[in-house]
Design a protein around this nucleic acid. Structure first.
Lengths: 129, 129
DNA sequence: TAATCATGTGAGCAGTTGTTCACATGATAA
DNA sequence: TTATCATGTGAACAACTGCTCACATGATTA
């Protein structure tokens, strides 16, 4: 796969004053910029809360208003509204206002795909254990 | 796509005492169990921290020891070790001890895939704005 | 043996996050 | 207009999280 990885026996020591310089330099050069990595972690963080995942699952396929979502996920309307604002600002959901109510759906199909990939992974992982 | 979604004009009101009962009931029945959703959010949470993402990117392809990773990501060896423990316990990375040092790599290819999908999404999203 | 070094770990702390409460806003109906 | 209702928002608080510090552990070398 990667010809730069030496066999374990050939490796030099990791002195504090003299780390594995070339490997570190190469890893550093391959690492994306900090703000890119930050943006990426912020994106995954959106899926890293069970209430938000519930909301996304709840509106995956069916279009629900805030108080419906509130009832489905078991969090106050206010709490749901706070989370929906976060999801809206990050374009994971989109809103349609109809009179007093606002209906929410997933913004695009990729969101459902990402959740599905996560499911596949934890299911495969369960199989391995 | 989904024939159960009525046109916006035909929707009934969302009274506090009388929510959109069938829609709510259907959404509830389609929702995975709570512990499943919790497990899924915990999985995504692992990618929801910029230090952990940096670590995963750093060892994606090259095998690095703790102090190397520490230098690449700019966090103390202790802090890196704490994060590596979390990643190890969740089988995102695997460790190989050689003498005093421990070399870390991604546990399997899916991990790199998931990060790549995240990248693709934020790049596409950027294109849309 | 003792000394050194890489890694692991518990404690403590600062910063963040998710929730509820109270109230504001905007829309419909009487 | 006023009343009611769904939603949105700021404040406050508790819980969580990631970091560093100090020290422990395990391995190598003198």
């Amino acid at each position: 796969m990667n010809e730069n990885i030496k066999p374990l026996e050939m490796r030099d020591e990791c002195q504090i004053t003299q780390t594995h310089d070339e490997k570190v330099a190469r890893a550093k050069s391959l690492l994306p910029e900090d703000d890119k990595l930050f943006e990426l972690s912020e994106f995954f963080k959106l899926f890293g809360d069970s209430t938000r995942i519930k909301i996304l699952e709840a509106i995956n396929g069916s279009e629900l208003c805030v108080c419906d979502i509130s009832e489905v996920v078991g969090v106050s309307s206010s709490g749901v509204s706070h989370q929906l604002r976060i999801l809206r600002q990050n374009r994971l959901v989109k809103a349609t206002r109809v009179g007093k109510e606002t209906y929410y759906t997933l913004d695009d199909d990729h969101i459902g795909d990402i959740i599905r990939i996560g499911y596949n992974h934890i299911n495969e992982r369960r199989g391995l254990i």
